[in-house]
C-alpha cells in the first residue's frame, strides 16, 4: 500500500493525521458550506451586513419564497422531463451498440468504435448551429423533447465506449457455447448478455443522470422559456433577477444541486465504477 499505512506511524503523526482530515475537509467544502448557511439566513441579516456571523434565525422561508415567487418548481420538473428520457434512451441505444461492437468481429468495427469515441470529445460549439437548426426544423425547438433527443444521441457516444469495453471483457465461451447450441443472435443479446450487463447499466444510468441534469450549454441553446428550461438555465436567469439577494440565489443553488447529489450518495459505488473505468488496467 502507498503511502505507508498511518497505523505504522508514530503516535503524534497519527494524531496529526486525524486532526488534519476534518480541517482539510472543512476548507475543501468551504464554498459549499457558506452557500448552505446563506440559504438559511434571513434577508435582514444580509441587509445588516451579517454575512458570516451566526444567522439570527433559521429562515426556511427562503426556500418557501423561491418556490412560490419563482418558477423553480417548473424548472426542476423540466429537468426531470429532459433527464429521465435521456437516461432511458441512451441506455437502450448503447447496450445495443456496445453489444454489436463488443461481440462481433467485422472490418469496420474499430472504425465505428473510434468514431463514437472521437465524437464524444468534440467541442459543443462545433455542433451548436446545425443542431439548433435541425431541432428547429423538426419543430422541437424550445421543447424538452428536442433537448432530450440531442442528449440521447450525444451520450450514446460515451456510453458505447463504456458498454463495449464492458461486454468485450465478458467470457467469450458463454457466447460461443450458445452459438454451438444454435441460439439466435438476438436471444444471445437478450438472455445471456443483457443480464450480465446490469452493473454497467446501473453505473451509466447514474452518470448520465448527473451529466444531463447539470448540462447548461445545451439548455441555453435549445430552450428559451420558463415552461421548458431545465433548472441550470433557469437558475442562471433567476440569478439575473435576484441581483444581490444571496439568500435566494443560495437556496436556489442548493435545490438545483440536490437531485444529482442524492443520486450520488445513493448509488455511490456505481457512480465511481463508471467514472473510473479505465483508470486501472
Amino acid at each position: 500500500m502507498f503511502p505507508r499505512p498511518i497505523q505504522q506511524a508514530s503516535a503524534p503523526a497519527r494524531a496529526l493525521y486525524k486532526t488534519a482530515l476534518p480541517i482539510a475537509l472543512f476548507l475543501w467544502l468551504f464554498p459549499l458550506l457558506g452557500v448552505a448557511v446563506t440559504s438559511l439566513r434571513p434577508a435582514s441579516d444580509l441587509a445588516m451586513g451579517n454575512y458570516f456571523g451566526m444567522p439570527s434565525d433559521i429562515a426556511w422561508g427562503n426556500y418557501l419564497e423561491i418556490f412560490t415567487n419563482s418558477p423553480i418548481g417548473q424548472y426542476i420538473f423540466n429537468s426531470f422531463k429532459v433527464t429521465i428520457p435521456t437516461v432511458i434512451g441512451t441506455l437502450i441505444l448503447s447496450t445495443m451498440t456496445g453489444f454489436a461492437l463488443g461481440i462481433y468481429r467485422f472490418r469496420a468495427n474499430l472504425l465505428v468504435f473510434f468514431m463514437f469515441v472521437a465524437g464524444n470529445f468534440v467541442p459543443f460549439q462545433i455542433l451548436m448551429v446545425p443542431v439548433r437548426d435541425l431541432t428547429y426544423g423538426l419543430g422541437l425547438y424550445n421543447t424538452t423533447g428536442g433537448l432530450a433527443l440531442f442528449h440521447i444521441a450525444f451520450q450514446t457516444g460515451f456510453c458505447t465506449l463504456f458498454m463495449r469495453n464492458f461486454i468485450a471483457a465478458l467470457p467469450r465461451e458463454l457466447i460461443e457455447a450458445a452459438r454451438v447450441e444454435g441460439v439466435a443472435e438476438w436471444k444471445i443479446f437478450w438472455y445471456i448478455v443483457l443480464p450480465l450487463m446490469r452493473p454497467a447499466i446501473a453505473a451509466l444510468a447514474v452518470l448520465v443522470f448527473t451529466f444531463i441534469w447539470n448540462d447548461f450549454f445545451w439548455a441555453t441553446v435549445l430552450t428559451t422559456s420558463a415552461s421548458t428550461q431545465p433548472v441550470t438555465a433557469g437558475l442562471s436567469s433567476l440569478n439575473g433577477q435576484w441581483i444581490a439577494q444571496w439568500h435566494l440565489v443560495s437556496a436556489g443553488s442548493i435545490i438545483a444541486a440536490l437531485p444529482p447529489v442524492l443520486m450520488f450518495f445513493l448509488m455511490q459505488k456505481h457512480f465511481i465504477a463508471g467514472l473510473t473505468l479505465g483508470a486501472v488496467k
Binding site: 467544502l29 464554498p31 459549499l32 452557500v35 447539470n214 442562471s236 443553488s253 438545483a256 444541486a257 444529482p260
Partner: peptide, 13 residues
C-alpha cells in the same frame, strides 16, 4: 462532492 454539483452552482458559489 464538488464534481457532482452543476458548474452553474459552482459558479454561483
Amino acid at each position: 462532492f464538488p464534481f457532482v454539483i452543476s458548474q452553474v452552482v459552482v459558479g454561483l458559489m
